[in-house]
């Protein structure tokens, strides 16, 4: 299969601090990759570096064979990178519908299809972003990433801080997007068990480097590796945030 996204020896961070020290990965069309690892191991930095909102120190990123390393974040988005940021970052002074239409681009993911995926958003279409619950904000963030009609969707801890029932609802939607619609995706998570069931492959980051890469199903069965590098406990303590990035 042809390569859709190829990240080659990417070194990136914030300001002068290097967080990622040479990460490589590749993604085929329709393939889903889980990126696992504990706090502060560089998962969010990897996503942000592909989106283009970090400081890059080296390495290359190709999308569909095209080198997008030198492109600005908005140009990368138009080239086909879809982003669901970690903090959701819903535009507060826009309504739910405006959050979607402001960034919408032509393609199969239309407003109607997003509302079909998340009926709750249709009910809340006239509410402002700041008035939504955490789960609704996450649905909107996913919908907003989809309506850009990307070639690959990057989801940064989409399940974090959500009630179990909302997690299930979101996982159903993500399974539909990834498995039924064939959207290529990178899913960053701490909760390995949840995401390994929808992804094809997985890699584990530790201190900015890849320490394990392989099949999702095989990793799921491999307790040893999981326990060594990933938090497998059900109850997760309140986690520290990634370093804040100034505009």
């Amino acid at each position: 299969m042809a390569e859709l996204l190829a990240v080659d020896e990417l070194r990136a961070g914030y300001g002068k601090a290097v967080v990622l020290s040479g990460v490589s990965l590749s993604l085929a069309p329709g393939e889903a990759l889980a990126v696992l690892g504990r706090n502060g191991m560089g998962k969010t930095t990897l996503i942000n570096a592909i989106v283009g909102v970090t400081q890059r120190f080296g390495g290359r990123i190709r999308l569909d064979g095209r080198d997008i390393t030198a492109l600005r974040p908005d140009q990368r988005a138009r080239a086909g990178i879809g982003w669901v940021p970690q903090e959701r970052n819903i535009f507060r002074s826009l309504t739910v519908e405006e959050n979607l239409t402001a960034v919408a681009r032509d393609g199969p993911w239309s407003l109607a299809k997003i509302y079909d995926l998340f009926p709750r958003l249709a009910e809340r279409r006239q509410n402002f972003g700041g008035q939504l619950s955490g789960g609704e904000q996450q649905m909107l963030a996913v919908g907003r990433g989809l309506i850009v009609n990307p070639r690959v969707l990057l989801l940064d801890e989409p399940l974090e801080g959500l009630a179990p029932i909302v997690v299930d609802e979101l996982m159903r939607a993500l399974r539909r997007v990834i498995r039924d619609e064939g959207m290529a995706a990178i899913l960053v998570e701490q909760n390995a068990r949840k995401v390994l069931s929808v992804t094809d492959r997985a890699l584990i980051l530790e201190r900015g480097s890849v320490v394990h890469a392989g099949d999702s199903a095989a990793l799921r069965a491999n307790r040893e590796v999981l326990e060594a590098h990933v938090s497998v406990a059900q109850a997760r303590p309140e986690r520290a945030r990634q370093p804040a990035v100034s505009n």
């Binding site: 908005d74 138009r78 826009l94 405006e98």
Partner: peptide
């Protein structure tokens, strides 16, 4: 207008607006 909503989005969060395809510059 759509221009208005893009402008408000960029005022809300320029970094994310740019990451979602809005040419903030």
């Amino acid at each position: 207008s759509r221009f208005g909503s893009r402008l408000r989005a960029a005022v809300d969060d320029a970094r994310v607006a740019q990451g979602l395809g809005i040419n903030v510059g």
